[in-house]
Design a protein around this nucleic acid. Structure first.
Lengths: 254, 254
DNA sequence: CGTGACATTGAAATGCGTCAAGATGAGTGG
DNA sequence: CCACTCATCTTGACGCATTTCAATGTCACG
């Protein structure tokens, strides 16, 4: 495909039909003809820089957004002016759904890395979805997945012990990365310890100690934001409420 | 109820157009003609007894449900077999949306009181919504509201202090009751302390102490499940992270 | 080589969970 | 009407996990 016109090529490559996320995102299960209809509605926004905001608290709902590259966090602003992380969003995951209630956005979406998003105007999406049953169904599915992620978050937060929350966080993040074609066992955290602490409802020091503890127990190897899962089985066990394995202090001989 | 033609009258009274929730629920903003289309889809289930379940964990998605009378809780079952309350549902609020992701229901809905629900088969709802833009829009709104409630729950759980969570819980519950025409200042809790504790990620004793503390501080009067908010301003302050007012130990005679 | 943001580690204070006992209230049967 | 029981709720005392405060360490970048 040596296309002489670079713009066309770029547009083509960025269409839903050629997107690596097409099986996970809105296009999933839609025929090629209908795909063109969807493509007309989706706007590819220019890349965002780190810390750039996709929408702000109080903004009226105009579009929903799908992370395409990079990672995002959504934060809600409490009265004190401090931010509280309510979600992390990997490629293929939706942002902005809280505004569907009609009161405007209740949170802000912030790029954690250089990132790209697809912007989907809700009115146009609704109009197209009404005509394409496949799209309507898939829209409901991705909304349901977003709700599921919120539930996972709530489940994390209702765990009493800090170490369980942390294990669950790492475990869940690994699974989400695997789902989009990454490795569940080796990845880089896009978010700071502070973001993680806020997301988990813990003090930042507690998160740090939790990571250290997991490393000492031989479950993970962590260096800054780089994480490697050494014992996925044990991590899953901890994430689901199991007690730490005392008998196995790997490579820790007194 | 010595009604000569019970079925017809009952059916009429129970139609969406005559429901007291019509301005909050799916019918909101829909014309009378279109309303009939919606009515054909909605099934009114027989009343549920206390502790009766609306759907079970793992059930495939067939319908979503709207609380009509009474109150519900949704619980997720952890590995240990113990339940964790993930939400409370008042009249007009949706249940079952977590199954939209396509993996079946992740939780169970349980009636806290004698209750009634409307059952809406999702396939039929989708078909009708595709034809009625007003319904489609309103469907998105109520889904958005459901997501907002999940966010409120997560916000509660991420509060560090037990008293903040409790204050936020009572404050939010009052607002929701006011929204459906009840009193925000005087109400009866449909759920047990145990349910509240599970919902807030606290021990039951901590919830009890929190209630007592709020009563001692003159913010509420609580007797079993009956709650009266004496100082709504202070309750709101506490809910939003304010420190307890020391200088005002109301009616505290040694 | 500084400087500042971010992360880790230590020591101390405390708020919450746990265990245990007591109180309350609803339902039942004498 | 009272005595009994069971479920639910409240209260107290204690230990411990987590927060808080403070110091140190690490890395990127000017």
């Amino acid at each position: 495909m040596a296309d002489p016109v670079p713009l066309d090529l770029a547009t083509l490559r960025r269409s839903c039909g050629h997107c690596s996320l097409r099986e996970l995102c809105l296009p999933a299960g839609i025929g090629v003809n209908d795909l063109a209809r969807l493509d007309e509605v989706v706007r590819r926004r220019r890349p965002l820089r780190r810390d750039e905001r996709l929408f702000h608290h109080g903004d009226a709902l105009s579009s929903i957004y799908v992370a395409r590259n990079g990672a995002f966090k959504t934060v809600s602003l409490s009265e004190g002016g401090d931010e509280r992380v309510v979600g992390f969003h990997l490629p293929g995951e939706l942002m902005g759904l809280d505004a569907l209630a009609g009161e405007g956005h209740r949170c802000e979406a912030v790029a954690l890395d250089p990132a790209e998003v697809c912007e989907v105007p809700v009115d146009e999406l609704a109009a197209v979805a009404a005509q394409l049953p496949g799209l309507q169904r898939q829209l409901m599915r991705v909304i349901g997945q977003s709700i599921s992620l919120d539930r996972d978050h709530a489940e994390m937060l209702s765990r009493r012990h800090a170490n369980e929350r942390i294990a669950l966080f790492l475990h869940g993040l690994g699974e989400r990365l695997a789902h989009i074609g990454g490795s569940a066992l080796q990845f880089r955290l896009a978010m700071s310890r502070e973001d993680i602490a806020s997301y988990l409802g813990l003090a930042i020091e507690t998160v740090s100690r939790g990571f250290t503890r997991l490393q000492d127990d031989g479950v993970i190897a962590v260096a800054g934001r780089q994480v490697e899962v050494l014992d996925p089985v044990e991590l899953a066990r901890l994430a689901h409420g199991g007690e730490p394995q005392q008998p196995q202090p790997q490579q820790r001989r007194a």
